[in-house]
Simulated scan of single mutants.
Amino acid sequence: MSLVNTTVPPFRVHAYQEGVFREVTDDDLRGRWSVIVFYPGDFTFVCPTELEDLADLYEEFRAIGVEVYGASTDSHFAHKAWHETSAAVGKVRYPLLADPALRLSRAFGVLVEEDGQALRGTFVIDPEGTIRTVEVHDAGIGRDAAELLRKVRAAQYITAHPGEVCPAKWDEGADTLTPSLDLVGKL
């Protein structure tokens, strides 16, 4: 069953962010747009490229009111060690959520039980705590932060403009569509 249009499940996890350990809960996602990006594990191969890509666009996400969260089944201690030893991960300023008990990954449906690791799952969450997009990849397929940013902008747009939809390759400022019988068979 898809998590799209469901409420973020309750959670409480430790996180590492900019030299500090802190707690993050589902309440922290309320009142603003959020993105949770699950990845298989610290000290791996594709993961640092994705986290660095997100770090490079982090200010653009923040500028449109979005908090980004990285998440894996590693501990917050492992996140700190990785942040301190990897040049790519060292760029990360957003929280890295720790899920060693596997509850968060399981609740979001990305846990590979036999491996104790998460698939590459991306979740865009609105300020009400509703999951608006879900994308899950195999561990070997990296994601593109610019495309994620475009999808967040589209989700924000349709939320602010009920009755309009964003066509393929839509980007901020481009034309949208208003579904109606007049459009059927004309696109």
Rank of each mutant, 00 (worst) to 15 (best):
R143G: 05
E84F: 03
G185I: 02
P179Q: 00
P9H: 08
V89H: 02
D171T: 10
P100N: 09
L102M: 13
T7G: 02
T176W: 06
T176V: 11
E59L: 11
R150G: 05
V4F: 06
S34D: 09
V66D: 08
A63S: 15
R103A: 15
I64F: 07
L148M: 15
S34F: 04
F38P: 11
K186Q: 14
V92W: 00
R153T: 01
K80N: 02
E60A: 10
S34H: 08
D26G: 07
Y157E: 14
N5Y: 11
R120Q: 05
V89M: 08
A146Y: 02
V68C: 07
G140E: 10
W33M: 11
T49H: 00
R62T: 11
V20L: 04
A63K: 12
F43D: 12
P10G: 00
V66L: 08
R32Y: 02
G142A: 08
H79P: 05
V165T: 14
K91W: 01
L148D: 00
D182V: 00
E128S: 15
T159K: 15
A174F: 03
A168F: 06
K151A: 10
A145R: 03
K80Q: 15
R103W: 05
G121W: 01
K151R: 15
L177D: 02
Y39P: 01
T159E: 14
I158R: 15
